[in-house]
Amino acid sequence: MDSAMLASLILHTVKADPRISVPVLIANICNQMGYTPSYRKAWIAKQKALEKMHSGWDASYNEIWQWCQVLERYVPGCITDLQTEPAYYNDRLLRGCQVFKCLFWSFKQCRDTFAYCKLLVQIDGTFMYGRYTHRLLLAVAQDGSGRILPIAFAITSGESADDWDFFLSRLRMHVCPQPDICVISDRGTGILAAIERQGSLWHHTHYRYYLRHIASNYYRQYPSKGERRQVANMGI
Rank of each mutant, 00 (worst) to 15 (best):
V231P: 06
P37I: 01
L93M: 11
G235I: 04
E63D: 14
I184L: 10
W43P: 04
A215T: 06
Q83W: 09
T133P: 03
S106K: 03
R229K: 14
L120A: 05
A161M: 12
V70C: 11
S216V: 01
N90Y: 09
A7Y: 03
C176P: 00
A16I: 06
F153T: 04
I148M: 10
R147P: 00
F104D: 06
P223A: 14
Q32H: 09
L93D: 11
Y88S: 07
W202V: 01
W202D: 02
G77W: 11
Q122D: 10
R95K: 02
D17V: 01
S38M: 04
E72L: 10
K225P: 00
N28L: 10
S38E: 08
C78A: 14
M5V: 14
H134I: 05
T189G: 02
F107R: 04
R197E: 10
M234G: 08
L171C: 06
Y222N: 08
P37H: 01
Y210F: 12
L149R: 06
N217C: 07
P23E: 05
Y222R: 08
L71K: 04
R40V: 13
A42I: 02
E72W: 09
Q69V: 06
Q69E: 13
K52N: 10
R170D: 13
L11G: 03
R220N: 15
R228W: 07
L136K: 00
L50W: 01
K101A: 14
Q32S: 13
I10R: 00
I236T: 05
A154G: 05
T80Y: 07
C182Y: 07
H174N: 10
D162V: 07
T84R: 08
E85N: 00
Y129D: 03
P150I: 04
C117N: 08
I26T: 07
N90C: 13
N90R: 08
Y35H: 07
C97K: 14
K46H: 09
K118Q: 14
G158R: 03
Q178K: 05
R208C: 06
L119S: 08
P179I: 10
T133H: 05
E85D: 06
Y210M: 13
D17K: 13
I148S: 07
C97H: 14
I79H: 00
V140W: 12
L93P: 02
I79E: 06
S8L: 15
L50M: 13
H174E: 11
Q47H: 09
Q109G: 14
Y74K: 05
A4V: 08
L149C: 04
